[in-house]
Amino acid sequence: MNGKEPYLKVDNLTKYYPVGGGLFTKARGYVRAVDHVSFNVYPGETVSLVGESGSGKTTVARLILRLVEPTEGSIVFNGVDLTTLKSGELRNIRRKIQIIFQDPYSSLNPRMTVYSMLAEVLLVHRIISREKITEHIEYLLQLVGLNTDAMYRYPHEFSGGQRQRIGIARALAVNPSLLVADEPVSALDVSVQAQILNLLMELQEKLHLTYLIISHDLGVVRHISDRVLVMYLGKIVEEAPTDILFDSPNHPYTKALLSAIPKPDPSATLPKLLAQGEPPSPVNPPPGCSFHPRCPYATEQCKNETPPLFRISETHRSACWVFANTPEKTTV
């Protein structure tokens, strides 16, 4: 990874949503959905973004796809800054980045057959000539493991897993090189989850794709990712290669997430380690380290000063005053 140019370079990416106030009245405050987030994704790797609900993961995905306007920051993809592009130029480049959504029920237009859905993008972007279109749609469906007779059916005729495959086929139709998957399996039955994850890994190999995978489930992440970014209240609090993150996590929040893995009940995300359960509101984030109200190790400094992302090693970064800023970095 080192020495290579990043394929996607996200720099100080920020999205504040105004709350209260209308078009002519001033907002009463801001939801800091994404707050100065920076990270790189290198060609061919799989990076995961994990965090609790409301930490801003979906907003990051939508910012990268330019479905949401950033408040601040830049997104450089393959050397081109997407945030400064005009809509015309954007349309051609954004095709290279595609997204897979969480909800396989709302991500497909209920009034369109699989054929018309796929044919539309293929024709609009002149990816294939009209005569070869059926053949190409068959190829795409086979690629994602569906029967070719799925083509003339409507979304409601499929199961969740099959719909997710259709969503993947649609994303692949425009020949993307970076795939952002926002909780691609969290809406699916456990038995189907593994199938979809395996499909994603097969496709990565076959089509040389780069992945940014968003998940709140560290079990999913461990299985497929090369590196992990941990997000909390709009900020990245830890970044490390998957093995390192799971073997020697640094940030207390990461540790809390890890200790929650074996729990089958997904609602019990933050057990034992943490006294208070609920994450604070992103409208008025606590001063200092935003995790301090829930952190058993919090000091005076944590309450007043926002920690930067400290470098623990070449590949490992963590935003913690207590564990990352001290000389003995290998605590735990």
Binding site: L65, N92, R94, Q98, F101, S107, N109, V121, G167, A171
Partner: peptide
């Protein structure tokens, strides 16, 4: 709805 976002991401006008 996500199907609209998908269409936007796919570059449809």
């Amino acid at each position: 709805m996500e199907y609209v976002l998908a269409s936007q991401a796919l570059g449809l006008n």
